[in-house]
Design a protein around this nucleic acid. Structure first.
Lengths: 228, 228
DNA sequence: TCGTGCATTCTTGTCTGACAATCTTAGGAC
DNA sequence: GTCCTAAGATTGTCAGACAAGAATGCACGA
């Protein structure tokens, strides 16, 4: 179940390309929180038909990168404290299961190791956006390495929102650049040692730290807007 | 986060209604494994426009109730052994987290208790289809009671396939009708006792039993087709 | 006889244009 | 100032159309 080597060639579909482009703009904060995204606006910006824009919006909505209800326009969500906690609870559930399963085999996934190196470089050079990308890639690689298509799909369902919050609040900037890399290293070490409990433990600590940074940043941001 | 009491009135959207109808037909085995579902066929059967049918197909595909790749017709998937294992691994991950969280509060969700009663009735009267519905409702209620929107969405992503396999193989029929109810009762008891580990344990046992029944039935079915 | 290659046909991807239903917003009446 | 109504904006759905990719069957050659 592990050697599913498929070479992915770029999105050939117009909808795919549109979806990818908008996704990047949202997670990088280029389209800010609370911004409205109408079907006609997208269709106009990219010069595609409205149904195409509609399809892209629907896919983004499915991943939590947009919110919308019937007959209302899609907006980039603003995650409050409770939602960030919910997000990290869900994330913890999936990723704990993933690292435990990996530690049971004792194999450190190559993709995760590569992402780890990328994080170290990005941290050293203060390339914030790259660091976020690599961080997401690291966690995604861990889940993917389990070889469970459904686990990966569930992870995909929430990692978009994680990416979104990291891009918006840029909490990583607040952390000592090497902290994240060290926590990741501890997780990989536990996997290599074949210790599922330790791996889950290190992962839990890492995610709690990340969540803490995020909540702190969120608090500061709201203080700035409403200074008592 | 628990009192989100919204009354759901029938799907007002045409796409929603279509989606719901096809979903039911698939999970009940009315549309058999391997059956092809073209956009025009759906559009014709329900007398809707092709884009509407397309949207419904895409949503079903997202939930794993259909498989399709670009330019190819959607088909009702045939799950093999490996995929059923993957499905139950993913399911176990989510539901274990759910019952553990519930047991931490010690509150038995009312919806789950209701579904449990419905299962007992259905088992007594041998109403197979109701039994499956109630079983799905039981597990869904457990997850929903945690109050995590994202956990529920992830669960939704896989429970459709569970429903599908149960409808197709009708493995519940093979089980002593009361077995399922008893296993469920043990889970609820552990939650009520506020014992997270026991709850997870009972859930794991229950799901392993269910998976075992499914794999056995699958094996028998393939033996019938290819009798050595 | 069997395999290869081509053409037809089916199906999906995307577009244009349109109308109805619904939500939002602005303006007017009290 | 508040409430209600109406116009504008936005989405839901439809019809019809064309292009591109995939699948199928048939003829041809080895």
């Amino acid at each position: 179940m592990s050697t599913e080597a498929r070479l992915e060639l770029g999105p050939s579909s117009l909808t795919d390309a549109l979806y990818e482009s908008v996704r990047k703009r949202i997670v990088n904060g280029e389209i800010p929180q609370g911004e409205k995204l109408t079907e006609v606006r997208l269709a106009g910006e990219y010069n595609v038909a409205r149904p195409t824009a509609k399809a892209a919006l629907e896919r983004l909505t499915a991943l939590g990168l947009l919110r919308r209800t019937a007959h209302k326009t899609a907006v980039v969500p603003v995650l409050d404290q409770a939602e960030i906690r919910d997000l990290f609870f869900s994330r913890m559930t999936i990723e704990k299961a993933a690292v435990s399963a990996l530690a049971a085999t004792g194999e450190v996934p190559a993709d995760a190791a590569r992402a780890q190196v990328a994080i170290e470089y990005a941290a050293r050079d203060r390339l914030f956006e790259n660091q976020v990308e690599a961080d997401i890639a690291f966690h995604t690689a861990l889940v993917a390495a389990v070889g469970s298509r459904r686990l990966s799909r569930m992870h995909e369902l929430i990692i978009g929102e994680v990416h979104l919050t990291m891009g918006q609040y840029q909490a990583h900037r607040k952390a000592a650049p090497t902290t994240v890399a060290e926590e990741h290293a501890a997780i990989l070490k536990a996997i290599e040692d074949g210790n599922p409990d330790a791996a889950a433990e290190h992962l839990a600590y890492h995610l709690e730290q990340a969540q803490g940074r995020l909540l702190t940043t969120l608090q500061q941001a709201s203080d700035e807007v409403v200074p008592q």
